[in-house]
Each structure stands twice: as C-alpha cells, then as structure tokens.
Amino acid sequence: MTVPCPYARFSGLPATVISISVNGECREFEAPLNCAELIARLDLGGKRVAIERNGEIVPRSQFPGQALLDGDRLEIVVAVGGG
C-alpha cells in the first residue's frame, strides 16, 4: 500500500491513461475517471463500499464528483464476517 504507483508520464503511456493503486495493486485506467466510474469499471456497482483516497475518506455522495488523478492510492473496502 505504501508503494506509490508509477506515474504515467514516466512510464511512456499515453497521457489519457492514468495509473492508480487500488487496494495495493497498480492498475491503469483511461482518463478522465471519477470514483463512481471507477466503481462501475471494477464491477462493484450496487455493492456497499467505502473509498479512501490518498488517506482521506471520499464520501459516497462525492463519488461522481471526485476526479481521480494519476498516482492516486485508493482503498476500497466492504464489510465481511469478523469478531
């Protein structure tokens, strides 16, 4: 999780592709991309999830407005069984 994503401009990718760390795994997406679109692209639509972006909570109401940037670190969590 602490490993930063390589920035697209250093990786020779087209400028419209951004590299984002999702749950510790680096992934590439076409930009522009907001949190709501990311959820849809990851097939998480309709699931109850919470997102932390670069250490800050993204309120669910702000998912459509939060544009993701190259190098962002995201944590996407759900509730699972536990004691």
Partner: peptide
Amino acid sequence: VTVAIRRTNIGQNPNEPSLLDYIPPNRFTL
C-alpha cells in the same frame, strides 16, 4: 453484531452475495 472491514475482492463475480445481504443493517446494529 460485529463485522470486519476488508479490501474488496476486485474481479470477483459481481453477483456474489455479501454479508450485509444476510445481516441487513436495518435489522441489526452493526
């Protein structure tokens, strides 16, 4: 009822049931 918070499995079957389908937050205090 206690629950844990974990990273979601990316790439899993989107129709896979989730804990909260069985333990709905409107019936229990999670």
